[in-house]
Design a protein around this nucleic acid. Structure first.
Length: 479
DNA sequence: TGAAATGTTGGGGCG
DNA sequence: ACGCCCCAACATTTC
């Protein structure tokens, strides 16, 4: 045995920046006695027009944290810059690795890349991006679900996960493998979202345990952007600093321990959000064309207005509708936006401004720290009414009512729109209705310190209903 | 994971 | 006492 050459494996890290419950890493350790952790800094990450600097910095910091935890395990991270296919091939040759292990990623870009890699080197993809593989959650005839509720029922009927893999104590990696430097970070994303597995676990623990576990009244408070009620785990799930299976096992465990039916409801609704995540990953896996445009054939030719000045106002948080503007400022400043707010601004862009949802999808990807192709596309198509299980197109959010309902005192608005800080509660969602004298008294003159609404909601709603109905009518006539 | 328009009901004011 | 009207409050339909 001693004389047999050791098997060498590459652990190719992509969006699984963790040691705990990592199936690719575990498989590599089982296969080989020498495992080399590798990350390829894909040039596309730095040149693409849809990468946010905050998200990139979050990832880079996550890689530093990962390297630190590897170093106390007799290992370290090997970083290479370049084209992933070429770099992996080079590394295999260089290290004499006989197998490459990685966590399967379902995005079209990743699948294309991985197909090429598999043609060049021995390559094994392991599950982990979702708890249940998209191919495992299908109808009896093998076809994928396109509606959330039946999908979630099927998902829940599968054997629940109960075991997660512990972080390995030791990963012997030979010293001296050349590694490129990680790029410097340029944003302040670490202030809001410190990267890394330890932080992710801390957040999960705070959410489900601690003195005031938010998970127990999650169902009552999750829709309120003015409260700190969400799990705040999305960036960590995005980069696999937290294993989704870890989250689901935690949810199932508290459900069993929950003291009352009421507190179980909170966990149930959090689990549902995790299943939404799996749903959209599965949609992108089975229908990669959603990345290019509308899922629904009958709504793929909407005549969008696509007014650049209107789009600009939306991006900058200058629409004159406080709840929309507050949310858009939160996004640009922190790299994150509350889920309810995402729905509100998406409805506003598509159905009030009549701007193509793909413009909004791109803007989100340019700013979100948790930006994920599958979830982002799914969310936008849902809001626009063009997607799977989409909101019917005539469901148009009223930005005033949404504000009053989900930010009743206007504290979310005042947090992100300092110019409205002195506006009384009565007018916080409709500042343009303030009498001029009162505008002066509170230091907000509409049109000077804060814009008047750039569009009339009632009129815009009618325009959108007509545009969607027309697209649908033309589609059925052409059949 | 809507909102607006329209319809129905029932209590109170009033002749 | 009774019917009529008004109009919230709630329900249903429509977009």
């Amino acid at each position: 045995m001693e004389n047999q050459p050791h098997k060498i494996a590459l652990w190719w890290i992509r969006r699984d920046l963790r040691l705990t419950d990592n199936q690719a890493l575990s498989a590599a350790l089982e296969y080989a006695s020498v495992v080399i952790p590798v990350f390829i800094l894909d040039a596309a990450l730095f040149t693409s027009s849809t990468v946010s600097a905050k998200r990139r910095d979050f990832m880079v910091e996550g890689l530093r944290r990962l390297d630190e935890t590897l170093r106390v395990r007799a290992s370290y991270l090997v970083v290479r810059k370049g084209n992933p296919v070429q770099e992996i091939c080079k590394l295999v040759a260089e290290t004499k690795a006989s197998m490459v292990f990685a966590e399967e990623d379902y995005s079209p870009y990743a699948r294309q890349r991985d197909t090429k890699v598999a043609e060049m080197v021995p390559f094994r993809l392991m599950p982990g991006l979702t708890v249940h593989h998209p191919r495992a959650v299908v109808k009896n005839d093998g076809r994928p679900y396109t509606v959330f509720t039946p999908f979630s029922k099927a998902w829940k009927s599968l054997p629940p996960p109960f075991k997660m893999l512990p972080a390995p104590q030791r990963i012997a990696t030979p010293m001296g493998i050349p590694s490129d430097e990680l790029p410097a970070e340029n944003t302040d994303i670490h202030v809001h979202y410190p990267a890394g597995e330890a932080e992710a676990n801390q957040r999960l623990a705070n959410f489900i345990r601690g003195p005031h576990p938010r998970v127990h009244d999650y169902h009552l408070r999750r829709d309120r952007p003015d409260l700190n009620a969400t799990s705040s785990l999305s960036p960590y799930l995005r980069f696999g600093m937290l294993s989704p299976r870890h989250a689901v096992i935690a949810a199932i465990k508290i459900m069993q321990l929950a003291p009352s039916a009421a507190s179980r409801q909170g966990v149930e609704s959090w689990l549902n959000e995790l299943i939404w995540r799996e749903f959209f990953q599965a949609i992108l896996y089975h229908f990669p064309q959603v990345h290019e445009g509308s899922f629904r054939k009958d709504l793929q030719n909407i005549r969008w207005e696509n007014d650049p000045a209107m789009f600009q106002a939306w991006c900058a948080g200058g629409t004159g509708y406080p709840i929309v503007d507050a949310a858009m400022r939160q996004l640009v400043q922190t790299g994150w936006m509350h889920n309810r707010a995402r729905m509100i601004v998406a409805s506003f862009l598509t159905k009030d401004l009549l701007i193509d949802w793909q413009w909004g999808e791109k803007w989100f990807m340019q700013h979100l720290v948790d930006g994920d192709v599958a979830a982002n596309n799914g969310g936008w198509q849902w809001a626009a009414g063009t997607g799977t299980d989409a909101a019917p197109y005539f469901r148009v959010f009223n930005p005033i009512l949404q504000g009053q309902k989900f930010d009743p005192h206007g504290t979310y608005i005042r947090t992100w729109l300092p110019e409205l800080r002195e506006v009384p509660e009565k007018f916080i969602h409709t500042p343009w209705e303030m009498p001029l004298a009162e505008q002066h008294r509170h230091g907000v003159v509409i049109g000077t310190h804060y814009p008047a609404p750039i569009i009339d909601h009632t009129w815009a709603r009618e325009r959108t209903l007509e545009a969607y109905a027309l697209a649908q009518k033309e589609a059925t006539e052409n059949k």
